[in-house]
Design a protein around this nucleic acid. Structure first.
Length: 634
RNA sequence: GCCGCUGUAGCUCAGCUGGCAGAGCAGCUGAUUCGUAAUCAGCAGGCCGAGGGUUCAAGUCCCUCCAGCGGCUCCA
C-alpha cells in the first residue's frame, strides 16, 4: 500500500506510509531541502521528521514564510530555555511564543543579570555546534503531569488542555511541553541573537507576580543575523531623542522629567503643524475655543475622570479646594455647550482646542517626545445629533487619510471596544461599536480590534504609527461618546420641540504635536519636509566677494516668508556644506564667481546628487513652490 | 509604578585589580578666502548625576535617592 502526497505545484508522489515529510520534499525538490525547516501537511504545520500515514497535501516551510519564521523563533525560545536551565537549574519555564520581531520566553526565576545572559549565550553556542535534534514525543496527559510536577505554570497549561494526549519536545536533556513543530536541530538557530532581559507581570496584571522575560531574534544563519543587526543599528541612529537634541528641536532636562522643552527650532515645527491643521479646521467648519487648564474636583466627578482617571491627574490645592490639571479637553467644551440653551440648528458644533494637557504618566513609561507628561493635541469635540454621527466620522476618516498621506506615513487603524467598568449601558456601547465598525468597513481600510481598550466613556478608532524600531504609537483617535454629554446634562431642542442629548465625537488627527513630531523625526531620519524645516535654505557665499549676491538671494527668499540663513566664509566650503547637511537643511544655495557673474544660484537639494544651477528667480520659485505645496521632498 | 542596565566637558566616549580627570567633535581667538560632507594653530571648558558610608586615599568599592535606557503595566 502506498499513499499519495500532493505538492504545491500539483506534482504527486506515491510513497509507503511512514515516509517522513523531509523525504518526500527531497524527492520533490532536492535543491530546496537545505532551506526547508518544517512543513504544512493537510493544512497543519508538522516537523520534517513526522512520518506521513495518509494521502494529502504537503507544502514546505522556510524561514521566508511567516509560519516558518515563527517556528524558528519558537525553536529559538526553546534553546534559550535549555541554556537558562543549564545556567540556573531552579528556573521554571512558563511560555515562549514567537512575536512580530522575534520571540521571548518568560521564566519564574530570580532576577537575571547581564552575566546570566552571557552565560546563556555561551550555552546556546555550544548547543548550536552540537547540532542537537528537537525530538517530539506524545504522551498521556497524566504522564505529562508527572513530568512537569515541579512546574506549576506547566501544570496550569495542562489543566487548560482538553486533549487526553499532549506533545513534548526534547533538546538534549531539556524537555518542554509544546505543540510544535520545531526546526530539525539546533544548527538551524546559528544566528540566534539575544536582545535582553526584563521583568514582566505574569498574566498581564500589574499586581501579579513577576517573571523574567528573555527576548531574542532567531536567524538560520549568522549572515542574516548580521544584516538584522546592521538594520537595527541604522534604526537606532534615527532615534528621535538623539535627533531632537542634535537638531536643537527639543530639550529634556533632569529637573522636569516627562516635560519636553521646545527650543526655537522645534517651536517652528510645532507652529507649522498647527498652521497646517488650523487651515483645515477653517475649511471644515470648526471654531476654536480655550478653556481652563485646571478644573475643580467636582467637574472631574461629573465627567467621570475622578472615578476612572484620577491616578493620572496632577492635583493642586487652591483655597482649600482640590483642583486637577486637565488631562483632556472634553470637560471644558462640555461646560461651554451647557452655558446656554442650544438648538438643533446649531449642530454639528465643532470646537477645536489646542491646550496643554497634563497626565501623570508612570515614570517608567516616559519616552522622549513620544510619551510625555505635558503635551498639546490637535483636539476637537463635535456635538452632533444621532444622524450626524456617520457623516462626521466619514469626513474625519478622510481627513486622516489625507493628513497621513501628506507625511508619507504607513498607519494602521484599531477599533477599541468597551473596557471593564465603563460608563453607560452595554446596548448603547455595542451600537456605538457597530457604528464605528461599519464606517471602517465602508472606508475599506484594514483595522484590528482591541477588545476592552476603549476609553471609559466610549469606543474609539485609533490611528497607530510605528517608530524606527517598530514600536507602535497611537496618534490620532476618533471617539464616540454618548456618556459624557449625558453626565453633564447637555441638551438641545430638536425640530420636534423636544429636548435631546447630543452625542460627542472626541477626535484628534495627528495626536499630540510631541508624539507626532517624535515619530515623524524617526520616519524622516530628521529630514523634515521643507515646509516643516526650521531652516529651509542656507545661503553660502564661497568668498567675501560673493557676499552681495548671496545677500540679495537671501533677502528675496525672506520677503516671501521663507526661513533662510547664511553661513560666513571663515570656514572652508566643504566644511560649511557638511554642516548644512548634518543640520538636514533642505536647500543649500551656493554663490561663487560663476553665479555672481551669471545671476544664477547653485542649489544643492537635499536627497539629490550634485547641484542644480539655475537663474536666481527660478531658484526662488522652485524653493517657494515646494514649500507652499507642502511637498514631502525638497 | 515593577525588573535589569546606565550616568565622566555642550555632544560622543576613554579612564585597568582604588593612587594627580583625558580624547574627538562643538565653542572661543587668530591665520587661511576656499567650487559642494571635516584647512591649520592656540585657548577655554569638569561638585565624575545627588547624598551618605568604607579607606591613608574613591570617577573607581558599598548604601539610599534622582534621571536616562530596554522591556512590563498603562497610554496621545
Amino acid at each position: 500500500m502506498r499513499i499519495a502526497l500532493t505538492l504545491p505545484d500539483g506534482q504527486q508522489f506515491e510513497v509507503p506510509p511512514g515516509t517522513s515529510a523531509s523525504e518526500v520534499l527531497r524527492l520533490w525538490n532536492p535543491t530546496l531541502s537545505g532551506s526547508v525547516l518544517a512543513a504544512i501537511y493537510q493544512d497543519r504545520p508538522i516537523d520534517l521528521a513526522t512520518p506521513l500515514d495518509r494521502s494529502g497535501s504537503l507544502r514546505p516551510l522556510t524561514f521566508e514564510d511567516r509560519a516558518g519564521r515563527d517556528i524558528l523563533q519558537h525553536s529559538s525560545a526553546h534553546l534559550v530555555a535549555k541554556a537558562l536551565l543549564e545556567t540556573v537549574p531552579s528556573a521554571l519555564p512558563t511560555h515562549g511564543p514567537p512575536t512580530d520581531e522575534g520571540f521571548f520566553y518568560d521564566f519564574d526565576v530570580r532576577p537575571l543579570t547581564a552575566d546570566d545572559l552571557e552565560a546563556i549565550r555561551t550555552r546556546i553556542q555550544e548547543a548550536i555546534h552540537l547540532k542537537e535534534p528537537f525530538v517530539r514525543r506524545e504522551l498521556p496527559i497524566d504522564e505529562a503531569r508527572r513530568l512537569f510536577a515541579a512546574n506549576p505554570h506547566k501544570l496550569r497549561y495542562l489543566a487548560d488542555t482538553p486533549d487526553p494526549v499532549v506533545s513534548v519536545y526534547s533538546t538534549g536533556s531539556f524537555v518542554d511541553l509544546c505543540r510544535g513543530p520545531h526546526v530539525p536541530d539546533t544548527s538551524w538557530l546559528a544566528g540566534l541573537h539575544l536582545l535582553g532581559v526584563s521583568a514582566v507581570h505574569d498574566g498581564g496584571r500589574e499586581d501579579g507576580p513577576m517573571l523574567q522575560r528573555i527576548r531574542g531574534v532567531g536567524f538560520p544563519t549568522v549572515a542574516l543575523r548580521d544584516q538584522y543587526l546592521r538594520q537595527r543599528q541604522e534604526a537606532e541612529a534615527r532615534d528621535h531623542r538623539g535627533l531632537a537634541q542634535r537638531l536643537e528641536l527639543a530639550l529634556f532636562l533632569e529637573e522636569v522629567p516627562g516635560f519636553p522643552i521646545w527650543l526655537p527650532r522645534g517651536m517652528v515645527v510645532v507652529r507649522e503643524l498647527e498652521r497646517y491643521v488650523t487651515e483645515h479646521l477653517a475649511a471644515a467648519g470648526y471654531s476654536e475655543v480655550r478653556t481652563p487648564l485646571m478644573f475643580p474636583q467636582s467637574v472631574f466627578e461629573t465627567s467621570g475622570h475622578w472615578e476612572h482617571y484620577r491616578e493620572n491627574i496632577f492635583l493642586s490645592t487652591v483655597d482649600d479646594r482640590v483642583f486637577g490639571w486637565k488631562p483632556m479637553n472634553c470637560p471644558g467644551s462640555m461646560l461651554i455647550f451647557r452655558s446656554r440653551s442650544r438648538s438643533y440648528r446649531e449642530l454639528p458644533l465643532r470646537w477645536a482646542e489646542f491646550a496643554p494637557l497634563h497626565r501623570r504618566e508612570a515614570s517608567g513609561t516616559l519616552h522622549g517626545l513620544t510619551r510625555v507628561r505635558e503635551f498639546v493635541q490637535d483636539d476637537a469635540h463635535l456635538f452632533v445629533t444621532e444622524d450626524q454621527i456617520e457623516p462626521e466620522i466619514r469626513t474625519l476618516l478622510e481627513w486622516v487619510r489625507s493628513a497621513f498621506t501628506t507625511f508619507r506615513f504607513e498607519w494602521s487603524y484599531e477599533l477599541s471596544t468597551r473596557p471593564p467598568g465603563a460608563l453607560g449601558d452595554v446596548a448603547q456601547w455595542t451600537a456605538a461599536e457597530n457604528t464605528l465598525r461599519r464606517l471602517l468597513e465602508e472606508a475599506n481600510v484594514p483595522y484590528r480590534i482591541s477588545p476592552g481598550e476603549g476609553a471609559f466613556y466610549g469606543p474609539k478608532i485609533d490611528i497607530h504609527l510605528k517608530d524606527s524600531l517598530g514600536r507602535p504609537w497611537q496618534t490620532g483617535t476618533i471617539q464616540l461618546d454618548y456618556q459624557t454629554p449625558k453626565r453633564f446634562g447637555l441638551e438641545y431642542q430638536g425640530a420636534d420641540g423636544q429636548m435631546h442629548t447630543p452625542v460627542v465625537i472626541h477626535r484628534t488627527i495627528l495626536g499630540s504635536w510631541e508624539r507626532f513630531i517624535g515619530v515623524l523625526l524617526e520616519h524622516t531620519s530628521g529630514r523634515l519636509p521643507p515646509w516643516l524645516s526650521p531652516v529651509q535654505v542656507r545661503v553660502l557665499p564661497i568668498a567675501e566677494a560673493h557676499s552681495a549676491a548671496a545677500q540679495a538671494f537671501l533677502e528675496g527668499l525672506r520677503q516671501r516668508g521663507i526661513r533662510v540663513d547664511r553661513s560666513e566664509s571663515t570656514e572652508s566650503l566643504p566644511k560649511r556644506i557638511r554642516s548644512a547637511e548634518i543640520e538636514r537643511i533642505p536647500y543649500i544655495a551656493v554663490f561663487g564667481d560663476r553665479e555672481a557673474q551669471d545671476a544664477t544660484v547653485a542649489l544643492r537639494i537635499r536627497g539629490t546628487k550634485g547641484s542644480l544651477v539655475v537663474p536666481v528667480a527660478e531658484g526662488i520659485a522652485r524653493i517657494e513652490g515646494a514649500i507652499r505645496s507642502r511637498s514631502f521632498d525638497p
